[in-house]
Design a protein around this nucleic acid. Structure first.
Length: 553
RNA sequence: UGGGUUAUAGUGUAAUGGUAGCACUACAGAUUUUGAUUCUGUCCGUCUAGGUUCGAAUCCUAGUAACCCAACCA
């Protein structure tokens, strides 16, 4: 019965390492820089790193890579922690690169003492010029021959605050002619007289990524340091530093980052969408951020399933948004409460139903009996969906039309007898008669109809605002189009319906409740919602065969 | 035009010299008091050209294409 799932390349490496006794336990980490909100691409990394820890009985740290004080903030730290937890993961330790500033400084001193690093006085521009290009070897800085003692002194002066930003840097002494640009005497430390969100003003020199990341991995005994493809060129330096420093040999492995159709995934672009007001914030339900998706109504389970299904490999990829939707619907179908809500209301009068009478009808809450049932009030005047009525029935149409019969879900079969138009020619009301012997659960009529529609009792319904979302961009991949990515923003990605009606049971939900509005999709209660003004987000539509039928004709 | 990485249905991902499989998408049908779900089926693939081999997606050679690398960002 057990169909074994094949391993991804990282799992193969881990199993080989474990098999040959290289490690008795693996240790991974998720290392975001706290300079923005996490998105679905980060979720892939989170699921990978934490998932590996769980699968192989190892540990996983949450580490904030906070080596650049001017970009980072505790606001981001807090949101990242919330998102990781919401996704369902617990870290072994919460750590910060800034926890290691003292150790990192000592390591830098050790490197200088070995003659493997030196203080340079060149400007950023001069350093860039001397660095050469991929096809032209670099040239030595005049400071490269500086004595160990002098570098040691200058470095301590850098730390003491004697120099201004940009006046001096610490560089590794490697090879100015290396084909790998990252090995041409990379910068290790720079001066930044800036307030750090955790260390305050204690430091004015900060390690660069390359002198913090691998060292932090090593300090934490990380066995498998997993990052994305663009860090491949850094691996040589990662190994070089660990080897020269003679510290725990963490190993770096790279996988391809996630790309998805109809959205963007770079922090820079997401920040732009927020700061320029194209969306209403990092948690705008249209955003691919974890917080946006959460607000939209995505479940953590569906995101985890998605991350599992997309796999882990080393080739560039572009995942169909529809796969994410599939995972979402698959999960929501199992858990969402079935309710009725009418988005675009059309008045329906049951002419032969007693005025003033109300019936309490029974309707099922979920996909199976375990979810139980609830009471839905029924009366003479109902709201039904405007699009469920056609003045002239199309072919294969089995909803309301003059003379046609449909079942009202959990209620009666009705027959459409007529309709009324207003002065503008719009249909304002339809008149139907109901068949008392067709009551749901007790139908003894023997009549069967092809269509079943949802409805709410006008007298009992609750008014609601419903927000419908569409893809953020009009094209699958903005990067492969001409011009700026913002030229392709979908201006109709948000549609607000302010006059929807929902059944009374919706009053008791919370933002954690997941609903399926029958035939209309999956919805959740937005944080803007209040008892006197319900607000719903449509998480995702149901799959729709009819809309395809319409397109065909 | 130096170095690095990667090429398997439309999209992802397996097959580690031995039947190219799975999922999503698309399409068709059955069931259905949600045109949903569920179930059944169909279409579609090894970048190219040579070579090794009884046998190649896999190994070799030569091409081609895509992505990454010259931040005091991570």
């Amino acid at each position: 019965m057990s169909e074994e799932k094949s391993l991804n390349f990282i799992e193969e490496i881990i199993e080989a390492d474990l098999a040959e006794g290289k490690y008795t336990q693996i240790y991974t980490r998720f290392p975001p820089e706290p300079n923005g909100y996490l998105h679905i691409g980060h979720a892939k990394s989170i699921c990978l790193n934490f998932g590996l820890g769980i699968k192989y009985g190892g540990k996983t740290n949450l580490r904030f890579d906070d080596t650049n004080p001017v970009k980072e903030d505790t606001e981001y730290v807090d949101s990242i922690k919330e998102d990781v937890q919401w996704l369902g993961f617990n870290w072994q330790k919460e750590v910060y690169a800034s926890d290691y500033f003292e150790q990192l400084y000592e390591m830098a001193v050790a490197l200088i003492k070995k003659g493997l690093a030196y203080v340079d006085d060149l400007s950023a521009e001069e350093i860039a010029t001397l660095k050469g290009s991929p096809t032209v070897p670099g040239m030595d800085s005049p400071a490269r021959g500086r004595s160990i003692e002098e570098s040691l002194l200058l470095f301590s002066e850098m730390k003491a605050g004697k120099y201004k930003d940009g006046e001096k840097v610490l560089r590794a002494k490697i090879d100015m002619a290396a084909t790998n640009m990252h090995m041409r005497d990379p910068l290790l430390y720079r001066i930044k007289h800036a307030n750090h969100h955790r260390t305050g003003d204690a430091w004015c020199i900060y390690p660069m990524y390359d002198f913090a990341h691998g060292q932090s991995d090593s300090i934490e005994n990380i066995t498998h340091s997993i990052c994305t493809l663009e860090f491949i060129p850094h691996r040589e330096l990662y190994d070089w530093l660990i080897e020269r420093l003679e510290i725990f040999p963490s190993k770096q492995y790279e996988f391809a980052r996630l790309n998805m159709t109809y959205t963007v995934m770079s922090k820079r672009k997401l920040l732009q969408l927020v700061s320029e007001g194209h969306v209403q914030g990092w948690d705008d339900p249209r955003m691919p951020t974890i917080s946006g998706m959460r607000r939209r109504g995505f479940t953590a389970e569906s995101i985890r399933t998605f991350c599992d299904k997309i796999g882990v490999a080393r080739r560039e990829n572009m995942i169909d948004f529809s796969l994410l939707e599939f995972c979402l619907r698959e999960d929501l179908n199992k858990s969402a409460l079935r309710v009725m809500g009418v988005l675009e209301p059309l008045k329906l009068i049951i002419t032969n139903y007693p005025q003033g009478q109300t019936e309490e009808l029974i309707s099922e809450n979920g996909p199976d009996d375990a979810y139980g049932t609830r009471i839905v009030p029924f009366s003479k005047i109902l709201w039904v969906e405007r699009e469920d009525f056609m003045e002239v029935a199309a072919k294969k149409w089995f909803r309301l039309a003059p003379g046609a019969m449909v079942r009202l879900k959990s209620a009666y079969i009705i027959k459409c007898d007529g309709f009324t138009k207003d002065a503008d020619g719009n249909i304002s009301e339809i008149q139907c008669s109901y068949l008392p012997e067709t009551k749901s659960g007790n139908d003894i009529s023997g009549i069967s109809v092809k269509g079943t529609i949802h409805w709410v009792s006008a007298q009992h319904a609750l008014p609601a605002e419903v927000r419908l979302y569409d893809r953020l961009f009009k094209v699958e991949n903005t990067a492969s189009e001409e011009g700026d990515f913002k030229d392709y923003i979908n201006e109709d990605s948000l549609k607000i319906i302010s006059n929807a009606w929902v059944e009374p049971s919706l009053l008791t939900g919370t933002t954690a409740t997941r609903y399926q509005f029958l035939r209309k999709g999956y919805f959740c209660i937005d944080k803007d919602s209040a008892a006197d003004k319900l607000v719903f987000n449509r998480t995702v539509t149901l799959k729709e065969a009819w809309s395809k039928e319409v397109k065909k004709n």
